[in-house]
Design a protein around this nucleic acid. Structure first.
Lengths: 236, 236
DNA sequence: GCGGCTCTCCCCATAAATGGGGAGGGAATA
DNA sequence: TATTCCCTCCCCATTTATGGGGAGAGCCGC
């Protein structure tokens, strides 16, 4: 493993908040001598936050207009596991072109690639490397450093999850029947169907749902199922 | 990067099916000189498949009894982003102890760690390294090779997704309002409450739920919410 | 400019889920 | 042994969700 990565990871160890993470991102940018680095955590609920080296004006603009909802980079990463080269994306739509134009005007380089990062419970983030150079030297750069950057993105996300406190408190333990009930409901069965599948009366099934809902602190069945799913207590 | 990883990645390039992937896993096991390696993809439908070096009898037993639903390793990985050392898990429950006993009886080593791998659309897999050794030498091994194995897991999953074709079936795209609706329902609101929050009529909200349900192929609201959650289209 | 999609609103009737009771037997645990 | 869960069953009435219609306005891409 290269010395560069080690340096970055060392700097990362001190990061206990967004400022620390940002510092680590800046340090990493200098290590690799690229224009910009971005760790961008996107929640589907619309919230987002980032540790990055972009111009604050651009960030403010991006945030205010919720540009992540039309950003081809974010959208592509959301459906992928493998890195995305910006050049290979579809920038033909009107809002995408506008986005690109504003980005370049704000000091972004012409080259970029982004790594999708998927976490538990639907957590999603993008790690982006941006630079200004010719296609050839850019290809050389990505070829030489992709693995290190992959690892760096992993560790930065690890740190980010720690800071964000994504790891929730301890999960309540569901009884087997409760798990069965919620699993079937999550799979689309109605209460009657689920009861039939489990060969118990619908009344009994209701008791399981109720107690599971109580344990999970859900206000209704859908809430309880969503909670159980997000906590990994059941899986589809 | 070490030669070991390069060897593995080279072998991986030829893998176009499960057999090829399994061959690569065997090759990697020999490279690192450990007892067992496992790539275990747990599909959201409950189906699962794996490329591994375990005893087929044990695999058959595991599969038949759906042991992944009680396997502390799988359950822990599902909620985490960081590697999981088996020794740190809670094996106190009866089924977990039984699982562990059977596993050891089937030739698994006493040491193991597993890497969670989260992909798009709620895809989830576990990459496990298993070995039989003392705590100290095991710690040395993990310290020395964690990064390489992290990368190897990444590339194996990349290959697995390619073979499975998971990456190509993109999620149905929900409209912003549909996302809002499902998010609020997942958070426990009733339709009336959600409509009030969004400042639209409940009738309108229903239309969003309906169309989202249709896009997601859900039989009812709970199913649709569970699907959206599992695919990462919404998050709690 | 047209077609497609999104967003918004409304009607009807029926099916389903919810809330809150009670009760007995069995298994595991402390 | 006593206690604490878990599993199973049933009653009531009420609220809520569902299924299947229709309709107009606005935005965007081709």
């Amino acid at each position: 493993m290269g010395r560069k990565l080690d340096d970055v990871l060392e700097g990362l160890g001190d990061a206990t908040d967004l400022a620390g993470l940002t510092a680590a991102v800046y340090e990493m940018r200098d290590c690799y001598d690229v224009e910009h680095l971005v760790y961008h955590s996107v929640k589907s609920s619309g919230d987002q936050w980032a540790a990055l080296t972009y111009d604050p004006t651009w960030v403010e603009d991006y945030t205010r207009n919720n540009l992540q909802t039309i950003d081809p980079v974010v959208l592509a990463c959301f459906n992928r596991f493998t890195p995305v080269d910006w050049k290979r994306l579809d920038w033909s739509s009107r809002p995408a072109r506008a986005l690109l134009g504003e980005a370049v005007a704000s000091g972004l380089g012409n080259q970029g690639f982004s790594l999708p990062i998927h976490g538990p419970s639907g957590h999603f983030a993008v790690f982006t490397v941006n630079h200004c150079s010719g296609d050839e030297s850019w290809a050389r750069f990505t070829g030489a450093h992709l693995n290190e950057i992959l690892l760096a993105a992993h560790y930065i996300n690890e740190r980010a999850l720690l800071i964000e406190g994504v790891g929730r408190g301890p999960n309540p333990s569901l009884s087997p029947r409760e798990t069965d009930a919620l699993t079937l409901l999550a799979a689309g069965r109605s209460r009657a169907q689920a009861a039939e599948t489990l060969r118990i009366s619908e009344h009994t099934l209701r008791v399981y749902i109720e107690s599971a809902r109580f344990k999970l602190g859900g206000t209704n069945t859908t809430h309880a199922v969503a909670n159980a799913l997000a906590r990994g207590l059941i899986c589809l």
